[in-house]
Design a binder for these strands. Structure first.
Length: 422
DNA sequence: TCTGGGGTCCTAGGACCC
DNA sequence: TCTGGGGTCCTAGGACCC
């Protein structure tokens, strides 16, 4: 049976989440900022119309926003994550075959879903999400994921389709593809664009008709699959199982520059806690940890960055053990006299808990005790507030923490931040 | 003054083995 | 002294995604 893929993508997702709870934002230029309130990551249509680009630092667009009665917000991931989950829950009603591709995007496959009026069915998805959540989505449909992506792009850009476009129903797909620049194809980034353009390939139709041998040579099997997908042959399957992470990273820029190792120790320790919490939440253990730190590459001050990693004798998910190692690693790479801007930790060699290779050096009792302790702490932190219980070495003041000066409330996940209407 | 964070997949090349 | 071929596994780095 042929695949029928739909890509459902939320419009201006982060900004849309802010708008749900704050009607004064409707019709205004609004942007949401990256961590540390650094640069723009999400823009309302009105902000786009002002020429504000993704990645623009706040200081470069603050004036124009102010002049146009605009607003800016810090990222509020508790809120966006919760809204995302609600949307994915709705999507599941329309097809059991769903791949949650990112916080604001999902692929559906209607391959063996019984549908009478396909067009109405798809429009109903859009309507339901608007009604139940208050977020606008765009839906692109095609026989492959790559074509569904392109269809989604068209649905978003061309107002005549009102946010829903089915590429298979279009009479002349080639003429459509001729209007899609190569860099707008899923999987073509800056490098591939350059390679393709040099060869005289500028649009999706030209890529579709390019020599497969040449494409594979220059862009590996990844490029070849891209060509096949453009031709309507599905090569990228729907990935339904929520696959466990193979690597976990926790890192942040500091809110200010940090010179002292004692502060770095606090930051590294809290990254260890974050990463280990994530590790446990997917029921995994890890046996490799690395620590990295760097100065601010945008400054003309002396630069230094380094990383170091170590294998554990036995894989584990016990925070204190990783914290100890991380501190040692930090001490090994820390150099005095530099102004640091960022640090983080990296976990690898991750495997399911039940695949533990036990060593002779750790007693069963110890292992079980550690596990129970972590479970208890995770439970308490989940029920009350993140990091209610944390390692002392994470510090109390945490003056190095990232800046988030313009954050809205966590309206849907914290009782004490419920929206007050009157 | 002010420039994000967290992932995946693929390949080439080296180490090692028979 | 000369000197083969095939295979696996691992890692670093490059490309991409949101």
């Amino acid at each position: 049976m042929k695949h029928v893929f739909a890509l459902v993508d939320c419009n201006n997702f982060y900004v849309s989440c802010e708008k749900i709870f704050n009607p004064k934002l409707i019709g205004k230029p609004v942007v949401v900022l990256s961590n540390n309130d650094g640069c723009v990551v999400s823009r309302s249509d009105e902000a786009k119309a002002l020429g504000i680009k993704t990645g623009t630092p706040l200081f470069k667009c603050r004036d124009i926003l102010k002049k146009n009665k605009g607003y800016f917000y810090s990222s509020n991931y508790s809120l966006y994550g919760d809204i995302s989950q609600r949307i994915m829950f709705i999507l599941r009603r329309f097809s059991p075959h769903i791949e949650i591709y990112s916080i604001d995007e999902a692929f559906l496959d209607f391959k063996d879903v019984k549908i009478d009026d396909f067009c109405a069915y798809i429009k109903n998805i859009k309507r339901t999400i608007r009604q139940w959540i208050g977020v606008e989505v765009s839906i692109g449909i095609g026989p492959t994921k790559t074509l569904a992506k392109i269809a989604n792009h068209i649905a978003k850009k061309d107002p005549q389709y009102r946010g829903v476009f089915d590429i298979s129903a279009y009479p002349d797909i080639d003429s459509l593809l001729a209007g899609v620049a190569v860099e707008d194809i899923w999987g073509v980034g800056r490098q591939y664009k350059k390679i393709l353009n040099n060869r005289g390939i500028f649009n999706a139709l030209e890529l579709k008709n390019a020599s497969e041998i040449w494409v594979q040579d220059k862009m590996t099997i990844v490029g070849l699959k891209m060509v096949w997908e453009l031709k309507g042959k599905s090569c990228l399957a729907l990935e339904q199982a929520d696959v466990n992470k193979k690597t976990i990273v926790s890192s942040r820029s500091f809110g200010r520059e940090v010179r002292d190792i004692s502060e770095l120790k606090e930051a590294v320790s809290s990254h260890v806690s974050t990463a280990l919490k994530k590790l446990r939440s997917q029921g995994s253990i890890a046996s490799f940890i690395a620590v990295f730190l760097s100065t601010n590459p945008f400054k003309e001050t002396p630069q230094y960055s380094n990383c170091a990693g170590i294998n554990l004798i036995e894989a584990s998910s016990y925070t204190p053990e990783f914290t100890k190692k991380a501190i040692l690693l930090l001490e090994a790479i820390y150099k005095k006299g530099y102004s640091y801007k960022k640090c983080g930790v990296y976990l690898a060699e991750i495997m399911p808990e039940n695949r533990l290779q036990m060593t002779l050096f750790i007693k069963d009792k110890e292992r079980e005790k550690n596990k129970q302790l972590m479970k208890l702490i995770d439970g308490i932190n989940k029920r009350f507030e993140e990091s209610k219980i944390h390692m002392a070495c994470e510090g109390i003041d945490q003056g190095w923490k990232m800046k988030q000066s313009f954050k809205s409330g966590r309206f849907t996940t914290r009782w004490n931040e419920l929206l007050v209407v009157k």
